[in-house]
Protein backbone atom coordinates (compact mmCIF):
# COMPACT_ATOMS: atom_id res chain seq x y z
CA UNK A 1 0.00 0.00 0.00
CA UNK A 2 3.09 2.23 0.08
CA UNK A 3 2.68 3.36 -3.50
CA UNK A 4 -0.61 5.14 -2.71
CA UNK A 5 -0.67 8.58 -1.03
CA UNK A 6 -2.56 8.70 2.27
CA UNK A 7 -4.33 11.83 1.13
CA UNK A 8 -4.57 13.73 -2.15
CA UNK A 9 -3.82 17.43 -2.69
CA UNK A 10 -6.47 20.09 -2.27
CA UNK A 11 -7.15 20.23 -5.99
CA UNK A 12 -8.07 16.53 -5.97
CA UNK A 13 -11.19 15.44 -7.85
CA UNK A 14 -14.39 14.51 -5.99
CA UNK A 15 -13.81 10.83 -6.74
CA UNK A 16 -10.64 9.10 -7.83
CA UNK A 17 -10.20 5.42 -8.60
CA UNK A 18 -6.50 4.69 -8.43
CA UNK A 19 -5.54 1.35 -10.03
CA UNK A 20 -8.62 -0.30 -8.58
CA UNK A 21 -9.01 -4.03 -9.18
CA UNK A 22 -11.82 -6.33 -8.19
CA UNK A 23 -11.46 -10.08 -8.39
CA UNK A 24 -13.79 -12.92 -7.46
CA UNK A 25 -11.49 -15.90 -7.16
CA UNK A 26 -10.15 -16.43 -10.67
CA UNK A 27 -12.47 -13.92 -12.27
CA UNK A 28 -11.16 -10.37 -12.67
CA UNK A 29 -14.03 -7.91 -12.94
CA UNK A 30 -12.09 -4.67 -12.70
CA UNK A 31 -8.48 -4.53 -13.76
CA UNK A 32 -6.41 -1.59 -12.43
CA UNK A 33 -9.14 0.86 -13.30
CA UNK A 34 -8.36 4.58 -13.12
CA UNK A 35 -11.16 7.12 -13.09
CA UNK A 36 -11.49 10.73 -11.92
CA UNK A 37 -14.83 12.43 -11.41
CA UNK A 38 -14.86 16.17 -10.67
CA UNK A 39 -17.30 17.90 -8.38
CA UNK A 40 -20.68 18.54 -10.02
CA UNK A 41 -19.78 16.39 -12.94
CA UNK A 42 -22.29 13.99 -14.42
CA UNK A 43 -20.61 10.84 -15.65
CA UNK A 44 -22.30 7.94 -17.40
CA UNK A 45 -20.76 4.51 -17.51
CA UNK A 46 -21.74 2.34 -20.45
CA UNK A 47 -20.57 -1.00 -21.66
CA UNK A 48 -21.61 -4.56 -22.36
CA UNK A 49 -23.07 -6.59 -19.50
CA UNK A 50 -20.42 -8.30 -17.44
CA UNK A 51 -17.93 -5.54 -18.23
CA UNK A 52 -17.78 -4.50 -14.58
CA UNK A 53 -19.63 -1.19 -14.84
CA UNK A 54 -21.99 -1.89 -11.94
CA UNK A 55 -19.01 -3.03 -9.87
CA UNK A 56 -17.58 0.49 -10.13
CA UNK A 57 -20.64 1.82 -8.30
CA UNK A 58 -20.80 -1.04 -5.80
CA UNK A 59 -17.18 -0.49 -4.79
CA UNK A 60 -17.77 3.23 -4.37
CA UNK A 61 -20.79 2.51 -2.15
CA UNK A 62 -18.59 0.04 -0.16
CA UNK A 63 -21.07 -2.75 -0.88
CA UNK A 64 -18.02 -4.72 -1.90
CA UNK A 65 -14.36 -4.53 -0.97
CA UNK A 66 -11.66 -3.58 -3.44
CA UNK A 67 -9.13 -6.32 -4.13
CA UNK A 68 -6.40 -3.86 -5.02
CA UNK A 69 -5.92 -0.14 -5.39
CA UNK A 70 -7.45 2.79 -3.55
CA UNK A 71 -10.57 4.87 -4.06
CA UNK A 72 -10.41 8.49 -2.91
CA UNK A 73 -13.44 10.65 -2.19
CA UNK A 74 -12.74 14.34 -1.67
CA UNK A 75 -9.07 13.47 -1.53
CA UNK A 76 -9.50 11.02 1.37
CA UNK A 77 -9.17 7.28 0.91
CA UNK A 78 -12.60 5.62 1.04
CA UNK A 79 -11.94 2.19 2.51
CA UNK A 80 -8.49 2.79 3.92
CA UNK A 81 -7.23 5.03 6.67
CA UNK A 82 -3.86 6.38 7.57
CA UNK A 83 -1.84 4.86 10.35
CA UNK A 84 1.84 5.76 10.85
CA UNK A 85 1.98 7.20 7.37
CA UNK A 86 0.65 4.00 5.81
CA UNK A 87 -2.74 3.08 4.42
CA UNK A 88 -4.49 0.32 6.37
CA UNK A 89 -8.04 -1.04 5.99
CA UNK A 90 -10.44 1.44 7.57
CA UNK A 91 -12.36 0.77 10.77
CA UNK A 92 -16.15 1.00 10.98
CA UNK A 93 -16.26 4.55 12.31
CA UNK A 94 -14.09 5.82 9.47
CA UNK A 95 -16.08 3.85 6.89
CA UNK A 96 -19.35 5.23 8.12
CA UNK A 97 -18.04 8.78 7.97
CA UNK A 98 -16.83 8.31 4.39
CA UNK A 99 -19.99 6.52 3.35
CA UNK A 100 -22.08 9.53 4.37
CA UNK A 101 -20.72 11.37 1.32
CA UNK A 102 -22.28 8.88 -1.05
CA UNK A 103 -25.85 7.93 -1.92
CA UNK A 104 -27.14 5.23 -4.21
CA UNK A 105 -30.26 4.18 -6.10
CA UNK A 106 -30.66 0.59 -7.17
CA UNK A 107 -32.02 -1.20 -10.22
CA UNK A 108 -34.67 -2.89 -8.07
CA UNK A 109 -35.30 0.16 -5.82
CA UNK A 110 -34.80 -1.79 -2.56
CA UNK A 111 -37.38 0.26 -0.74
CA UNK A 112 -38.23 -0.94 2.76
CA UNK A 113 -41.57 -2.73 2.25
CA UNK A 114 -42.78 -2.25 5.81
CA UNK A 115 -42.50 1.54 5.70
CA UNK A 116 -44.51 4.14 3.79
CA UNK A 117 -42.89 6.31 1.12
CA UNK A 118 -42.43 9.09 3.67
CA UNK A 119 -41.06 6.73 6.34
CA UNK A 120 -38.59 5.32 3.82
CA UNK A 121 -37.25 8.85 3.26
CA UNK A 122 -37.21 9.76 6.97
CA UNK A 123 -35.43 6.61 8.18
CA UNK A 124 -31.87 7.66 7.31
CA UNK A 125 -32.11 11.31 8.37
CA UNK A 126 -33.51 10.33 11.77
CA UNK A 127 -31.38 7.28 12.52
CA UNK A 128 -28.10 8.28 10.93
CA UNK A 129 -28.09 12.07 10.66
CA UNK A 130 -29.94 12.41 14.01
CA UNK A 131 -32.36 14.99 12.65
CA UNK A 132 -35.49 15.64 14.69
CA UNK A 133 -38.63 13.97 13.41
CA UNK A 134 -39.96 17.36 12.36
CA UNK A 135 -36.86 18.29 10.35
CA UNK A 136 -36.67 14.87 8.74
CA UNK A 137 -40.31 15.07 7.83
CA UNK A 138 -39.99 18.49 6.23
CA UNK A 139 -36.93 17.49 4.29
CA UNK A 140 -38.58 14.28 3.09
CA UNK A 141 -41.81 16.03 2.11
CA UNK A 142 -39.83 18.57 0.05
CA UNK A 143 -38.05 15.77 -1.75
CA UNK A 144 -41.20 13.75 -2.35
CA UNK A 145 -42.67 16.95 -3.76
CA UNK A 146 -39.66 17.34 -6.04
CA UNK A 147 -40.10 13.82 -7.40
CA UNK A 148 -43.83 14.53 -7.78
CA UNK A 149 -45.10 12.08 -5.19
CA UNK A 150 -46.48 14.25 -2.40
CA UNK A 151 -49.85 12.56 -2.71
CA UNK A 152 -48.33 9.08 -2.32
CA UNK A 153 -46.37 9.79 0.84
CA UNK A 154 -48.46 7.52 3.07
CA UNK A 155 -48.50 4.56 0.69
CA UNK A 156 -46.40 1.46 1.21
CA UNK A 157 -44.12 0.45 -1.68
CA UNK A 158 -46.33 -2.48 -2.64
CA UNK A 159 -49.06 -0.02 -3.66
CA UNK A 160 -46.77 2.07 -5.90
CA UNK A 161 -45.86 1.51 -9.53
CA UNK A 162 -42.25 0.74 -10.45
CA UNK A 163 -41.65 4.30 -11.64
CA UNK A 164 -43.12 5.71 -8.44
CA UNK A 165 -41.03 3.35 -6.32
CA UNK A 166 -37.86 4.43 -8.09
CA UNK A 167 -38.72 8.09 -7.56
CA UNK A 168 -39.21 7.41 -3.83
CA UNK A 169 -35.84 5.66 -3.82
CA UNK A 170 -34.23 8.74 -5.36
CA UNK A 171 -35.87 10.97 -2.75
CA UNK A 172 -34.71 8.60 -0.01
CA UNK A 173 -31.11 8.79 -1.22
CA UNK A 174 -31.26 12.59 -1.60
CA UNK A 175 -32.58 13.00 1.94
CA UNK A 176 -29.14 11.98 3.20
CA UNK A 177 -27.63 14.99 1.34
CA UNK A 178 -24.87 12.97 -0.31
CA UNK A 179 -22.16 14.69 -2.31
CA UNK A 180 -21.94 11.88 -4.83
CA UNK A 181 -25.01 10.13 -6.14
CA UNK A 182 -24.78 6.69 -7.73
CA UNK A 183 -27.53 5.52 -10.07
CA UNK A 184 -27.30 1.83 -10.90
CA UNK A 185 -29.45 1.03 -13.95
CA UNK A 186 -32.34 2.83 -12.30
CA UNK A 187 -34.58 2.47 -15.32
CA UNK A 188 -33.76 -1.13 -16.31
CA UNK A 189 -36.49 -2.75 -14.24
CA UNK A 190 -39.16 -0.28 -15.32
CA UNK A 191 -41.88 -0.52 -17.92
CA UNK A 192 -41.13 1.67 -20.95
CA UNK A 193 -44.02 4.05 -20.28
CA UNK A 194 -42.76 5.05 -16.82
CA UNK A 195 -39.07 5.45 -17.68
CA UNK A 196 -39.71 9.07 -18.69
CA UNK A 197 -40.90 10.10 -15.25
CA UNK A 198 -37.72 8.81 -13.63
CA UNK A 199 -35.47 10.40 -16.25
CA UNK A 200 -37.20 13.74 -15.65
CA UNK A 201 -36.37 13.49 -11.97
CA UNK A 202 -32.73 12.76 -12.77
CA UNK A 203 -32.60 15.78 -15.08
CA UNK A 204 -33.84 17.95 -12.20
CA UNK A 205 -31.38 16.38 -9.86
CA UNK A 206 -28.52 17.34 -12.12
CA UNK A 207 -29.82 20.84 -12.74
CA UNK A 208 -30.93 21.83 -9.25
CA UNK A 209 -28.93 19.84 -6.73
CA UNK A 210 -25.26 20.46 -7.50
CA UNK A 211 -24.57 16.78 -7.19
CA UNK A 212 -21.79 14.72 -8.56
CA UNK A 213 -23.57 11.92 -10.35
CA UNK A 214 -22.17 8.61 -11.48
CA UNK A 215 -24.64 6.56 -13.43
CA UNK A 216 -24.70 3.18 -15.09
CA UNK A 217 -27.33 3.07 -17.79
CA UNK A 218 -28.63 1.37 -20.87
CA UNK A 219 -30.45 4.50 -22.01
CA UNK A 220 -27.92 5.71 -24.56
CA UNK A 221 -30.05 8.64 -25.70
CA UNK A 222 -30.39 9.83 -22.15
CA UNK A 223 -26.69 9.36 -21.39
CA UNK A 224 -25.88 11.42 -24.47
CA UNK A 225 -28.27 14.21 -23.57
CA UNK A 226 -27.38 14.63 -19.92
CA UNK A 227 -23.78 13.53 -19.31
CA UNK A 228 -20.74 15.73 -19.14
CA UNK A 229 -18.63 12.70 -19.83
CA UNK A 230 -19.26 9.13 -20.92
CA UNK A 231 -17.00 6.21 -19.99
CA UNK A 232 -17.07 3.03 -22.00
CA UNK A 233 -15.98 0.10 -19.83
CA UNK A 234 -14.68 -3.02 -21.45
CA UNK A 235 -12.98 -6.00 -19.82
CA UNK A 236 -12.61 -4.30 -16.46
CA UNK A 237 -10.96 -1.18 -17.81
CA UNK A 238 -12.14 2.12 -19.18
CA UNK A 239 -11.58 1.59 -22.87
CA UNK A 240 -12.62 5.06 -23.88
CA UNK A 241 -13.87 8.20 -22.15
CA UNK A 242 -14.87 11.62 -23.35
CA UNK A 243 -17.72 14.05 -23.91
CA UNK A 244 -20.88 12.42 -25.30
CA UNK A 245 -20.34 14.02 -28.69
CA UNK A 246 -17.04 12.20 -29.03
CA UNK A 247 -18.15 8.81 -27.69
CA UNK A 248 -21.42 8.61 -29.56
CA UNK A 249 -20.57 10.45 -32.77
CA UNK A 250 -16.88 9.77 -33.25
CA UNK A 251 -15.75 6.84 -31.15
CA UNK A 252 -12.06 6.05 -31.47
CA UNK A 253 -11.87 2.57 -29.96
CA UNK A 254 -13.12 -0.25 -32.22
CA UNK A 255 -14.74 -1.92 -29.17
CA UNK A 256 -16.79 1.21 -28.53
CA UNK A 257 -17.91 1.32 -32.14
CA UNK A 258 -18.88 -2.33 -32.04
CA UNK A 259 -20.84 -1.92 -28.81
CA UNK A 260 -22.69 1.19 -29.97
CA UNK A 261 -23.68 -0.29 -33.28
CA UNK A 262 -24.97 -3.42 -31.52
CA UNK A 263 -27.02 -1.27 -29.16
CA UNK A 264 -28.35 0.87 -32.00
CA UNK A 265 -29.38 -2.20 -33.94
CA UNK A 266 -31.18 -3.59 -30.91
CA UNK A 267 -33.15 -0.38 -30.61
Amino acid sequence: MNEYPTRLNDDAPMVRFSKVSKRYGELTVLDELDLDVSANEMVSIIGPSGSGKTTVLRLLMTLEDVSDGVIYVEGEPLTHMERDGQLVPANQAYLRRQRSKIGMCFQHFNLFPHMTALENCMEGPIQVLRLSKQEARERSLDLLDMVGLSDKRDQHPIRLSGGQQQRVAIARALAMRPKVMLLDEVTSALDPEVIGEVLNVIRKLNAEHNLTVLMVTHQMGFAKEISDRVCFVYNGKIAEAGPPSQIFDAPQNPRTKQFLSAVLQAN
Binding site: I102, F109, N110, E123, A173
Partner: peptide, 14 residues
Protein backbone atom coordinates in the same frame (compact mmCIF):
# COMPACT_ATOMS: atom_id res chain seq x y z
CA UNK B 1 -33.71 -9.82 -0.21
CA UNK B 2 -30.02 -8.94 -0.44
CA UNK B 3 -31.03 -5.53 -1.80
CA UNK B 4 -32.44 -4.57 1.59
CA UNK B 5 -29.01 -5.02 3.19
CA UNK B 6 -27.47 -2.98 0.41
CA UNK B 7 -30.00 -0.19 0.76
CA UNK B 8 -29.19 -0.01 4.49
CA UNK B 9 -25.51 0.20 3.65
CA UNK B 10 -26.20 2.95 1.13
CA UNK B 11 -28.13 4.90 3.79
CA UNK B 12 -25.24 4.33 6.18
CA UNK B 13 -27.46 2.67 8.83
CA UNK B 14 -25.58 0.96 11.65
Amino acid sequence: PQGQWEACRALNLS
